[in-house]
Design a protein around this nucleic acid. Structure first.
Length: 597
RNA sequence: GCCCUGAUAGCUCAAUUGGAUAGAGCAACGGCCUUCUAAGCCGUAGGUUAUGGGUUCGAGUCCCGUUCAGGGUACCA
């Protein structure tokens, strides 16, 4: 039960009886009562005063008096200016706690066969270099979003579109042919994606060198970029690939295979996965077909150089290239093809693209183009646009070697977690294997929480040295609190204490307990809000609030040593519900909670 | 040039979408381990919400101007 909705009904009828008019839903505004005032929830009367013909104070007081006499929900009230502070009866809070206790999936909704089907595309890597910090944000957001939507009763298909073809992978292939000497991940012990990335860097160096030489000989920069020997060789490779040349295709397959093996390790470490993977090498032709169909039907037009374009001026945008003059496809072409294939493969109700905000324009155009091509779902595409991850020194630039590699970062985090854990002397009773597993959970918890707690739409700063902390508003803080709760519950079971929701004698609770009861009651709407806003951050910040409140409660009140059995039971149930919510909430963020730490 | 974002404590982030005296953590300083886990708790200090105007009972939030930063802008993805 949601207290807000419940009160909305009550207040609507109160207003009808007292002031003889029916308020619209958006006039009924609630907020948490601020700490300095007495009460649990506050009704803001300003929006309705113009209809009540009374002062804000009188309006609030009259509604308050009505609510108190009505039923046993509101215990008392007070009025400050236009704010009606309501104190909910303790029995309502206790009932809510009992409901949460008996329902393991409190606050979550179950999907049924006819629930909305949402496809979420995320990750979407290129196969020429390893994943970096920017990809980590993408992967964590995409995965978490999928889990949040599941928690809201949607059916979800997680998908990944791998950009496995094009000029970028040919650069690595060329470098490998030139200087690879047959090296493989096995022969070198280097993770496949990193090995291929190394060749990409090698190419780039060579290319730059050639350009510099040409410029020194008097060529313009642009000319140099286009006629350097290495780039010509790479273009030749791409042509051979598109023509299906056997050796080229085999090399391409082999090197991409290395990359996928590497990516899979990173994905596994991050704890993300996919239900369906698409490859651009398999979708780009379908995109070409669509563009050609559009041309035939007069939706698009062709220039003299035979390139194909869409005229978007009626939408207030420019003209958009869809096929190059040499007939090869561009990014947009591929996305059209991929979208079409997906809607053929699944009965998708909603398509979500988790892609950085630098591509806002791209997705605006994609939606319009699909609409022009006659797909009624085109306009419904949702671009979940997130901000970039910046370093204290500025943007990550691969050319300047300032990219933070995903694998390195994860390894480093685990190292720090282990060092800290050993210093604190935790986990001493555990086997080495278990301890190692726990350190990994903590390290990833820190990383994931750090990234997910910030508003996805905003750019964020990541300081690899200082930003990742294990104290304060962090993943480990929440994990730690959970571990403590579990420890108490274990001890209760060891002492043969049966945890049951049978504590009817409780008439009053301490302030911190009341605080916790309130926060617990907010979980269902937080889950809903996180899904509506597409924001894991909402959930993360809630988990922190709850954890903080629990710690304060835990510090002031003993649980197992409480002599009053009714009270002890109540506190055990309270603790159990908090740990359950944390597990469900953090679970939707992809963050594991260890039993001990 | 044009278009889109953003700017909140020294740093990293919040602020229930227009509500009460703008909140947390980090860093700094001062307390609390003989008591269910101190990765914790309590306290002190830190703010003209970039800036100037406007809208109204009420603005960090909405509108206009300015400054700064980031992104996009037709054959990169």
């Amino acid at each position: 039960m949601n207290i807000e909705n419940f009160l909305k009904e009550k207040i609507t009828s109160a207003i009808q009886v007292i002031f003889d008019f029916e308020p619209e839903n958006n006039m009924l505004q609630f907020q948490q009562t601020r700490k300095e005032f007495e009460g649990d929830i506050t009704f803001v009367v300003f929006p309705i005063v113009r209809y009540t013909q009374k002062s804000p104070e009188d309006t609030a007081r009259m509604i308050g008096e009505y609510l108190v006499t009505d039923e046993g929900i509101i215990e008392k009230f007070n009025v400050v200016k236009g704010f009606l502070n309501l104190t909910i009866t303790i029995s309502w809070w206790i009932n809510n706690l009992k409901e949460a206790f008996k329902n393991e999936r409190y606050g979550l909704k179950e999907a049924t066969e006819d629930s909305e089907l949402v496809m979420i595309e995320y990750s979407s890597p290129n196969t020429n270099k390893p994943l970096h910090l920017g990809h980590i944000r993408n992967n964590l957001l995409g995965f978490s979003l999928a889990e949040i939507l599941k928690g809201n009763g949607k059916r979800v298909v997680k998908t990944n579109i791998v950009n496995d073809r094009g000029i970028h992978i040919c650069k690595s292939m060329y470098a490998w042919q030139q200087w690879g000497e047959g090296r493989t991940p096995e022969s070198t012990g280097i993770k496949g994606d990193h090995l291929v990335g190394d060749f990409y860097v090698m190419f780039d160096k060579q290319y730059k060198k050639e350009i510099a030489e040409l410029v020194a000989k008097g060529f313009s920069e642009q000319e140099a970029e286009n006629c350097a020997l290495s780039i010509l060789a790479v273009r030749e490779l791409l042509r051979k690939w598109e023509a299906g040349h056997k050796g080229t295709v085999e090399l391409w397959k082999m090197m991409n295979g290395w990359v996928y093996d590497g990516f899979n390790v990173t994905y596994r470490n991050l704890g993300v996965d996919f239900d369906k993977i698409y490859y651009e090498s398999e979708t780009y032709l379908s995109g070409k077909e669509e563009v050609l169909r559009g041309l035939k039907e007069g939706i698009f037009y062709q220039k003299d150089d035979s390139s194909i374009w869409a005229d978007l001026t009626s939408e207030g945008l420019d003209h958009k290239l869809l096929l190059r003059s040499d007939g090869t496809s561009v990014y947009m072409t591929q996305d059209i093809g991929t979208a079409k294939m997906r809607f053929n493969d699944y009965p998708i109700d909603k398509m979500v693209y988790v892609v950085g905000n630098e591509q806002n324009y791209h997705f605006q155009v994609l939606a319009i183009l699909l609409d022009m091509l006659g797909y009624d779902w085109g306009r419904e595409l949702y671009h979940f646009s997130y901000g970039m991850v910046e370093l204290p020194t500025g943007k990550m630039k691969s050319r300047e070697g300032t990219v933070v590699d995903a694998d390195d970062l994860i390894a480093e985090m685990i190292e720090v977690a282990r060092k800290m854990g050993e210093e604190l002397g935790k986990l001493e009773g555990l086997s080495e294997e278990e301890a190692e597993r726990t350190y990994k959970i903590i390290a990833l918890g820190a990383l994931k929480y750090f990234i997910l707690k910030v508003d996805p739409r905003k750019n964020m700063t990541f300081d690899p040295k200082e930003s990742i902390d294990f104290n304060g508003n962090t993943g480990p803080f929440i994990q730690y609190t959970h571990a403590r709760i579990r420890s108490v519950l274990r001890k209760a079971i060891d002492a043969n204490i049966n945890i049951s929701a049978d504590f009817n004698g409780i008439k009053t609770v301490e302030e911190k307990e009341r605080e916790l009861l309130k926060t617990i009651s907010l979980f269902p709407e937080t889950v809903e809000e996180a899904a509506m806003e597409y924001s894991p951050a909402v959930l993360a910040n809630y988990c922190y609030e709850l954890t903080k409140h629990f710690n304060q409660f835990y510090h002031e009140h003993s649980i197992l040593n409480e002599p009053d059995l009714d009270k002890r039971n109540f506190r055990l149930v309270l603790s159990d519900v908090v740990s359950e919510i944390l597990r469900n909430g953090m679970g939707m963020l992809g963050i594991e909670l260890p039993e001990r730490m």
